[in-house]
Design a protein around this nucleic acid. Sequence first.
DNA 1: TTGAATTTTCAGTAATTTCTGAAAATTGTA
DNA 2: TACAATTTTCAGAAATTACTGAAAATTCAA
Lengths: 180, 180
Amino acid sequence: MIITPMQQSLISHFGEMGSRWGLNRTLGQMYALIVLTEQPLNADQISDALLISRSNVSMGIKELKSWNLIKLQHIPGDRKEYFSAPKDIWEIARTLIIERRKRELDPTLSTFRDALLQDPANEADKYTQQRVQDMHDLMEMVTIWSTELQNMSSDKLSTLLKLGSGVGKILDAKDRFLSK
Amino acid sequence: MIITPMQQSLISHFGEMGSRWGLNRTLGQMYALIVLTEQPLNADQISDALLISRSNVSMGIKELKSWNLIKLQHIPGDRKEYFSAPKDIWEIARTLIIERRKRELDPTLSTFRDALLQDPANEADKYTQQRVQDMHDLMEMVTIWSTELQNMSSDKLSTLLKLGSGVGKILDAKDRFLSK
DNA sequence: TTGAATTTTCAGTAATTTCTGAAAATTGTA
DNA sequence: TACAATTTTCAGAAATTACTGAAAATTCAA
């Protein structure tokens, strides 16, 4: 498993960014390696390439599996497991959106609902509930969006994103449009 | 600075979630406290309420300032600085989107551009560049979107989000619509 | 200016997270 | 079934991150 300088610099960068995304350095590096390599890789190859222990790779794979970010493959005549990333970058993006929502939004939404069901004990609680209500409504809408994206084909997702700076125009004319 | 049980449970939750967002526990708790309290708070009140050291609060405030998440206020006759969050939840959301983009996307986009400018040394590099190109294009579109959101009023942002499950419909009819 | 009030910095410590090697568990084939 | 190959687990070590108290710096009113 030889890594080119270009790959190395990208892998390092993903490592540094890894922690800013909910992952960690090693996980970022592992995923970069898998995404940037055409052939599926086995755990030993990953361990060699990134100079990390075999057991660390095993834990990393477990985590990447829990994120649904890797595909598992078998090569005939080889007992090792091989890992690869989806070739469709939109599929990866979609998965990331879904998984981040699960981890970052869903638990909070549920906590918000609990708080809103309680009787406010005093003025402070009343104010708190107002704010929670606002945050709840916002997060719920983001959730609806992400569900929509989840069920969207790569083509459609791509079209939507390319709409980019056209969003404003659509909104300006939305009423006219929706009334047709 | 008395905290109600309702506030306490929300603050705890924000603390736990804090690390899943690029913040940390204390920062999450601090921001929850500030958002959920109607009155602006000073550093000592935050320190008291959350049972953390005054210096920790100072560092937290510095961080929240760098995220543009808090407003600084002065109360006549009081030399202390008071902090509050925007009352408009959309403004907070907008700020979060911008700041997360700055931290999570921009540096990566720049690394991608560097890699794409290089001459591929071999087949592996050619494949790597293909994948980088895909990721680059996707991230650039997300960036354009976030810039759009950045310049959008709260009203408009709210309208867009509420569109929710209407997005698919809009896309289906996009061509018809845009040709008008 | 001066000095009390307030905020910030920072070195050392504490807490948390990540990583490793060794051992246990699992898998698949002969 | 037996066993070699492979993967997973996990306790302890290493690395990183967060927190504190004390001291330095800043602010502002008199």
